[in-house]
């Protein structure tokens, strides 16, 4: 029972991270039917943005009040990258065959990884570390440090922070989508872009906003990841992105709440697979395999996902 409770906590933590990233896939997909394959890199850039902010302004300072500013730095880095990406690479391809944006996305993904790997330590004026290896991430007070013990269950402080981030971001997202003009515009565009355009909604702007919203959450996830794993690297976006995409599909791509549900589900499945799949195919070496197997099974048998009511018939 303790093992189950422990994996529940682990799963929810992992799931929160997936959920935060998955929202980015799903928001963009819901509006332009594009799998923004490079979204994992936005998450990575967020982590590096936070690190840079810390190095530039607060080097050595681990007080809690620094954290919001690091998150702000992360968000600025991620959103800038995402918006530029949309503007430069995706927008010209909006009416191209569907293969073209996907290949572009792969290209952007590789480009961003390499750019960070090669040039992070060469940024002028600042003394950034070499990003070719893992880079230690500042371990901010209060949200890191000694874990809480609840009976036999260990709860890391960073885990609580991650779950807290998901709760707050979800609330913020709910307010944005349902209560603001832009959010309603997003809903309209995802229903029917052409009609939305005729109704005077600036579809281009909405698409940019979708990218920015996804990037904001990914940036938060990047910070949470940095705090949890204690270091970051240029490759962290690939697997996380892939998993988050799995989560988005699992929950029903295009559906924002689906991403959250899917993320948590995937996290739990992975955690439970580590603990409860018996024999030599259990344990952490195989958890990614089980996650991908789940992705394939879901895509084959229920491509609309857990919550997805939208008919997925995109060729």
């Amino acid at each position: 029972m303790d093992a189950f409770a422990q994996q529940l906590v682990n799963g929810l933590t992992l799931g929160s991270l997936y959920a935060l990233i998955a929202v980015g896939y799903t928001v963009v997909y819901g509006i332009v039917q594009l799998i923004n394959f490079a979204h994992g890199e936005i998450f990575m850039i967020g982590a590096f943005g936070a690190l840079s902010t810390w190095l530039i302004f607060f080097d050595g300072n681990l007080a809690l009040w620094v954290l919001p500013l690091m998150i702000l730095g992360a968000v600025i880095a991620s959103v800038t990258t995402a918006v530029l990406m949309e503007r430069i690479a995706y927008r010209p391809l909006r009416h191209a065959p569907r293969l073209a944006p996907l290949i572009t996305a792969i290209g952007i993904s590789i480009f961003l990884q390499e750019a960070v790997r090669l040039f992070y330590d060469e940024v002028p004026f600042f003394d950034f570390p070499d990003a070719k290896q893992r880079v230690p991430f500042p371990q901010i007070e209060v949200v890191t440090g000694p874990a809480f013990q609840l009976g036999n269950v260990t709860i890391q402080r960073s885990a609580l922070f991650t779950i807290g981030c998901l709760v707050m971001c979800s609330a913020g997202l709910w307010y944005f989508v349902n209560r603001t003009r832009t959010g309603k515009g997003m809903q309209a565009v995802s229903q029917d872009p052409d009609t939305a355009r005729l109704m005077g909604i600036n579809v281009d702007r909405i698409i940019v906003v979708a990218f920015a919203v996804g990037a904001t959450l990914a940036a938060v996830a990047g910070v949470a990841q940095g705090l949890q794993v204690t270091n970051i690297n240029f490759r962290m976006g690939f697997l996380a992105g892939l998993k988050a995409f799995t989560a988005a599909v699992l929950g029903g791509i295009g559906n924002v709440w689906g991403a959250v549900v899917g993320g948590l589900t995937l996290g739990l499945v992975e955690a439970m697979a580590v603990q409860f799949i018996p024999g030599t195919f259990g344990g952490s070496p195989w958890k990614d395999v089980w996650a991908f197997a789940l992705l394939i099974i879901v895509l084959v048998f229920r491509p609309q996902g857990i919550l997805g009511a939208k008919v997925v018939d995109r060729a």
């Binding site: 799998i35 569907r98 996907l102 892939l242 995409f245 799995t246 599909v249 991908f292 197997a293 992705l295 394939i296 895509l299 084959v300 048998f301 491509p303 997925v312 995109r314 060729a315």
Partner: peptide, 13 residues
């Protein structure tokens, strides 16, 4: 059952 982008992700998986 799946096509297009979804298939791409399945193969990636």
């Amino acid at each position: 059952r799946v096509s297009g982008d979804y298939l791409a992700i399945v193969t990636l998986g």
